[in-house]
Amino acid sequence: MKDIEILLENSPGQLALLGETLGKNNISLEGGGVFQNGENSIAHFLVAEADKAKEVLAKEGIVVNKINEVVIQKLRQDVPGQLGMFCRKMANAGVNILVQYSDHSNQLIIVVDDILKAKIVSDEWKRQC
């Protein structure tokens, strides 16, 4: 799975066009969100076929800014503070979290500035929990 970062015009129908385009091309969104930023919106979505998504969206004039590696982590929903604890471990390792959202399986998805360090922290978290 990878994260695609998409620049959308902030106008009616843009998210519909994105969803319809991916759906017609049998590309499923596994999590993500859209965030308004002035005249544009920034979207981040988790997809299995990032390169294909970029290609089909480009044909509709939708720009995929980046394709990002992600860390996928399961947090314990019954333990308050899991997000803070996990993010503190990332911060202590010098990892900056650039994007955070959840997938459809209630897993934490993060895009980071140092994927190698982040995977080490994530693997350690999985062993401890």
Rank of each mutant, 00 (worst) to 15 (best):
D78N: 14
K24L: 13
N26I: 08
R76Y: 12
R127Y: 11
I6L: 02
G31P: 01
F86H: 00
L116T: 14
V99Y: 10
N65D: 06
V64A: 04
K66M: 06
N68W: 01
Q128A: 13
L15V: 15
L57T: 07
K117V: 02
I115T: 03
Q107C: 12
G61N: 09
E39Y: 13
L46R: 12
S122H: 04
V34A: 11
E20I: 12
G61T: 04
K126M: 11
D3H: 03
F86D: 00
I4G: 05
G61K: 05
S122R: 04
N10W: 06
R127C: 06
N92E: 15
E39Q: 11
I72L: 14
E9K: 12
W125I: 02
N40L: 08
R127H: 11
V71L: 08
Q73D: 03
I115F: 00
E69I: 07
L22D: 03
S122E: 13
E39T: 08
L29H: 04
L75S: 06
I72G: 00
E124W: 10
N92G: 08
K24H: 12
R76I: 11
L116D: 14
G33V: 08
L75M: 09
D3L: 03
L46M: 09
L22Q: 02
H104R: 13
G33D: 06
D103L: 07
D78C: 04
Q36I: 13
M1P: 11
I67P: 02
G19M: 08
I72V: 15
E9W: 06
K126E: 14
K52Q: 12
M90F: 06
L8T: 02
V79C: 01
D78Y: 02
E49W: 07
Y101A: 00
S11W: 02
M85A: 14
F35N: 12
I110D: 09
V121I: 14
Q73I: 13
L8Y: 05
I62Y: 10
G32S: 01
Q14T: 14
Q82E: 11
Q100P: 02
V111I: 09
E5Q: 14
G23W: 05
I27W: 04
S11G: 04
S105V: 01
D78E: 15
G13P: 07
E124K: 15
K89C: 07
A48G: 11
G32P: 03
Q73W: 05
K126H: 10
D78H: 05
L22T: 05
